Each structure stands twice: as C-alpha cells, then as structure tokens.
Amino acid sequence: MFSIIRDAGWPIWPLLLCSIAALALIIERLVSLRAVKVAPPNLLEEVISVSRSSLPGADVVNKLAHNSVLGLVLATGLRAVIAEPRITEEALRNAFENAGRVAVHKLERYLNTLGTLASAAPLMGLFGTVIGMIEIFGSPTASGGSNPLMLAHGISVALYNTAFGLIIAIPSLMFYRYFRGLVDAYALELEQSSERMVPHLMRFAVPRGSSH
C-alpha cells in the first residue's frame, strides 16, 4: 500500500486527505443521525400523555428539549403555548415550522461536504493520472525510452490515482444518498409529529374573546 502511494506521486496526497475527511464525516453522521438522537419511537406519545390534562412545568420542557431533535421541536411548541396562553393556531404552526426548519438544517449538516467529496474525488484522481501521463510521455528516458514494459508500468502507476479516487467516491456517494434519504424521512416524521401536537396544544389556548 505504501509503495503504491509512493509510486503514484504527489497528486495522491490530496486524495488521502479526502478519504480521511469522508470517513470522518460518515462516522459523525452515522452517530448523529441515529433514531434515538433524532426521533425516539415513543417520544410523541409520551409527550401527549404527560400533557393530556395540563401543560408540563419548565423543568420537564427543558428536559424534553435536550432529549432529541424531535424533543426540541415539541418543546418549542409547548413553550409557545406556555409563553402566550392566547396563542392562535397559525402562530403555533409557525413556531413548529420554524423549529422544524432549524432541526432539518441541523440534520443536513456536513451532507453537502460529503457530496462534494464524492463528486470531487474522481476528478482529483483523473487529474493525478493526467499529471502522471504528462510526466511519462514528457520524459522518455524516465520511462525506459522505447521499452514497452517500462512504459506500461508507468501508465499503470499513473492510473493508481484514478482508481483511488473512485474508491473514495463510490462509498461516499452511497452514504450521501443514504443520509439524504434518512434526513428526508426524519423531516417527514417531525412534520407529522408537529401536526399532531397543534390540535392537542390548542386545547390549552385561551380564546381571544375570553376575559380569563
């Protein structure tokens, strides 16, 4: 492996950095996009159950906000109703929508970078191969002159860069697509949970015309 890296020349070093960055991003997103950290399965039902008869206290809401991404969105709706008892349904929906947008933006963190690495790695590999070809054909004595075996060896070494670029790009693209689908699924779940919470929380809102 080290001999391949040495023979491939300096263009392979940026590819090595890309591979390290892509691996780090994939591991980070695998950890951050787990269901337990984004949308625990029974969280919505638990929140509805706890707030069935009355709104929870500030400590419970704060604990919910730190529970997960979904917990933060639900806590935003609870805080909106607690802070403004006369809140309208439209205002409550806006609070949920704003919290949802922030949550989705958080879930999409680093995905553009991973997608860029997946797109750039093959081009960087091709660039390294072109540089290798230029060096081979620009310096006949370095490749053994008219010796076809030496020339073939030089070309195969130059192609290491393209191969390495593809090795980085293929898994990076696969994980990028996987994470993008996961984020879309979570975004839909956040939206549906918010829709269920709106009528549930509006039961606690004081009508505008009421004096109480």
Rank of each mutant, 00 (worst) to 15 (best):
R101D: 00
K63E: 01
A103E: 10
S53N: 09
A75I: 04
G77F: 00
P85F: 15
V73E: 08
E84V: 04
L92P: 12
A58V: 14
S68L: 08
Y110I: 05
E84P: 00
G144I: 14
R52N: 13
V61L: 00
G144E: 06
V102T: 12
L111W: 12
G144Y: 13
R93A: 06
V157R: 06
L64T: 06
L149W: 01
L107N: 10
S119D: 04
L72P: 00
G132Q: 07
S156I: 00
G138R: 02
V69A: 09
G77A: 07
T129I: 08
G115K: 07
A121V: 06
M124T: 03
R109M: 15
L117P: 10
H66W: 12
S156G: 03
L72V: 01
V60G: 03
A80Y: 10
V157W: 01
G144K: 09
P56S: 14
A80V: 08
P56W: 13
P56G: 15
K63Q: 01
V157D: 04
S53V: 12
L123G: 09
L114S: 07
G57P: 07
I155L: 00
I134L: 15
G145S: 11
A75R: 07
A83R: 03
P140E: 11
L55E: 11
I136E: 06
G71E: 05
V130I: 05
V102I: 06
V60Y: 15
N147F: 11
G144N: 11
A142I: 04
F137T: 00
P140T: 11
V69T: 10
L107P: 14
N98A: 03
P122I: 11
S53M: 08
G128K: 02
L123H: 14
L78D: 10
L111I: 14
L70F: 13
T88Q: 15
G115L: 10
L78Y: 12
K63V: 04
T141E: 08
G128V: 06
N62G: 08
V81R: 14
H105S: 06
V61F: 02
S139C: 05
P56N: 13
V104P: 08
V102F: 10
K106D: 15
S119F: 06
R93G: 02
L123F: 15
S54N: 15
